Amino acid sequence: MEISTEKDSRYNGLENMSAGELLRNINNEDKTVPLAVEKALPQIEKLVDIVADRMQNGGRLFYIGAGTSGRLGVVDASECPPTFGVPFDWVVGIIAGGDTAIRKAVEFAEDDIEQAWKDLQAFDTNDGDVVVGIAASGTTPYVIGGLQAANANGLATGCIVCNAGSPVAAEAQFPVEVVTGPEFVTGSTRMKAGTAQKLVLNMLSTSVMIKLGRVKGNKMVDMQLSNNKLVHRGTRMVMAETGLPEAEAAELLKQYGSVRKAVDAHSHK
């Protein structure tokens, strides 16, 4: 297969460019990413539907990846509980090399074709779960092996890749292929490919959580009130929903611990 993310950059002599030239050229490349994502919307929709269906029936969502791709999965998973008030084990990000690899690259971890399934088994995965492999190149052995084993054990599988016709996409039942092309710095897939993966992950988890009823109107009514900013945001939500003055809304929120519960309590008075 042709790995377009590894092709030579459209730009050369980068070290001779001014800061302004570098920024403009990087920005020009970045502008192509959402257009590439747009082409994959039908694929993303199918993945959202299967994940939402499985999770509505008690299943979980697992992300597996290596390097930048793995880190992006960990970030998306870790942001679901505070944003949507879901248990920490509903969406799980697994990175090749373990949590150490989030901060420091673990050599050759991505080349172990059997390790992803071992990592998944630590969570007692079952055929109600979904595994989404994230790999810019679409050739990462860790991800390929994980998807193969997940398929063999009856789990639903998806992927987010940035090349067409990849081995990872061939293993996924619900592949998402966002073809981002050559990077500004040749092969540096933390740039456009990483941005594309982040956009798709935002779409996937947000859409699934909305379908699971974790958003009301356009508000994060189940968010964790873990800092003052979020408490103030929650208070404003309660005020908007109930018409209560700020002090009473804040007290109601403090009493019930979430916007949803506070609003429900007020409406049932």
Rank of each mutant, 00 (worst) to 15 (best):
D111A: 06
D127W: 04
G93Y: 04
K198W: 08
Q115E: 15
V178W: 01
A109N: 07
D124Y: 11
G93W: 03
A101V: 06
P82H: 13
F174G: 01
A150M: 07
A164M: 13
D112R: 07
V200W: 12
A152Y: 02
A150P: 08
K118L: 14
S188H: 11
G98K: 07
G194S: 11
T157Y: 07
V132M: 08
G145M: 00
A164G: 05
G194F: 07
I95C: 10
V161A: 02
F184D: 03
V106M: 05
R103N: 12
Q148K: 15
K192T: 09
A109D: 06
V161M: 07
G181Y: 11
V179R: 01
A109L: 06
I113H: 05
L147A: 05
D112F: 05
F123R: 07
A150I: 10
T83N: 08
N153A: 11
A149Y: 01
F174S: 03
C159T: 12
P167Q: 08
D124M: 11
F174A: 06
L155S: 08
Q148C: 06
T189Y: 08
V106D: 05
P141I: 00
A122C: 05
P141T: 05
W90R: 15
R190Q: 11
A116N: 06
C162A: 06
P87A: 14
D112A: 10
R103D: 08
M191R: 01
Y142C: 05
V161G: 00
M203N: 02
V131H: 02
V86D: 10
V176K: 04
P81Y: 06
F108K: 14
R103C: 03
G165Q: 03
M191G: 03
Q148E: 15
A105L: 12
Y142V: 01
P167L: 02
V200T: 09
S188R: 09
L204R: 07
C159W: 02
G85Y: 08
E177V: 02
P82F: 12
A116K: 01
A196R: 01
I94G: 00
Q197D: 10
N126I: 09
G85M: 09
K118T: 12
A116E: 02
A156Q: 14
L155Y: 04
G85C: 13
T100I: 13
G187S: 12
P141N: 12
M203K: 10
M191S: 01
N202P: 08
D129L: 09
L155Q: 14
V131G: 05
P81R: 08
R103K: 09
I102K: 14
I94Y: 00
A164V: 13
Q115A: 15
A196S: 12
A116L: 11
V132I: 15
T139R: 15
V132H: 09
T186A: 10
A136T: 01
A122W: 00
I144F: 04
G138I: 02
E110I: 04
T140N: 00
E107C: 09
F84K: 06
T125I: 15
V106Y: 09
I160D: 00
G138V: 06
A135F: 02
N153V: 09
C159K: 04
E110V: 04
S137C: 07
A136D: 02
L199M: 15
V131T: 07
E114W: 12
F174L: 07
A193I: 04
